[in-house]
């Protein structure tokens, strides 16, 4: 159980998909202007991530490695379509506010990245916890950012006015404000980790495919194989 907990927490802090791995930033920056949107986006992504991780882990011995990416996309797209249809039926306003970013979960690099790095190599239970941890990590960041952006940028929370009209920092709801907060969040996390004495070194899952990998690592499997 301790092992599973570690996988779960890994996604939330040590390998937070948004702040440490810097994946899926597009949707975080775009959607985090309102708390309800951020919450919806986080829930949708967590659901897709958990489901696709489990299914891909189940299929990991059947999927031929040459066509694995299309296979992952088919699995992921299935769940995204599911989420989209449910949301359109029951949460129409949220569906409208998320717009294209909901469909874009299909190509969200967190989902695809975890499928490639984790689910395709580990068993189902581990993959489930990894998907859950990564989803929670993403949701935490997007909610944290959207609270600040909506509260100080628009003066509201969940659409309810907290700060009176005329005392907003409008730039926070625009793209530069999003980037600024994103940078601050990364800086705070890195500083906190540095204070704890942990060496800051994001460790990406290694698939041995060094040609397509940008991270610098000691064990270059491909080079060794040759």
């Amino acid at each position: 159980m301790k092992e599973k907990m570690k996988i779960l927490l890994n996604g939330i802090f040590k390998e937070n998909p948004v702040l440490i791995l810097a994946l899926g930033c597009c949707s975080v920056l775009a959607v985090s202007v309102s708390v309800s949107g951020g919450l919806g986006m986080g829930a949708a992504l967590t659901f897709v991530l958990v489901c696709s991780n489990v299914v891909i882990s189940l299929l990991r011995n059947i999927i031929p490695s040459k066509v694995r990416i299309p296979c992952y996309i088919v699995v992921i797209a299935t769940f995204v379509t599911l989420v989209e249809m449910v949301m359109e039926a029951y949460l129409k306003s949220l569906y409208d506010s998320l717009g294209v970013f909901l469909s874009l979960i299909v190509v969200n690099c967190i989902v695809l990245g975890r499928a490639e790095m984790f689910a395709s190599k580990r068993n189902v239970v581990d993959s489930f916890f990894d998907g859950l941890g990564m989803g929670i990590g993403y949701t935490m960041v997007i909610i944290g950012m959207s609270v600040i952006r909506e509260l100080f940028g628009a003066g509201t929370l969940f659409g309810i006015r907290i700060i009176p009209e005329g005392y907003q920092l409008g730039i926070l709801t625009q793209a530069p404000g999003g980037f600024f907060l994103f940078g601050c969040a990364i800086a705070i996390l890195v500083a906190a980790m540095a204070k704890k004495g942990k060496k800051f070194e994001p460790k990406m899952g290694c698939d041995g495919n060094c040609a397509a990998c940008h991270s610098s690592c000691d064990d270059r499997k491909e080079a060794e194989a040759k």
Binding site: Q168, L169, G170, I171, L172, Q174, P176
Partner: peptide, 8 residues
């Protein structure tokens, strides 16, 4: 710039 975009 920040003032310009925040308090246009």
């Amino acid at each position: 710039v920040v003032m310009f975009f925040s308090f246009t």
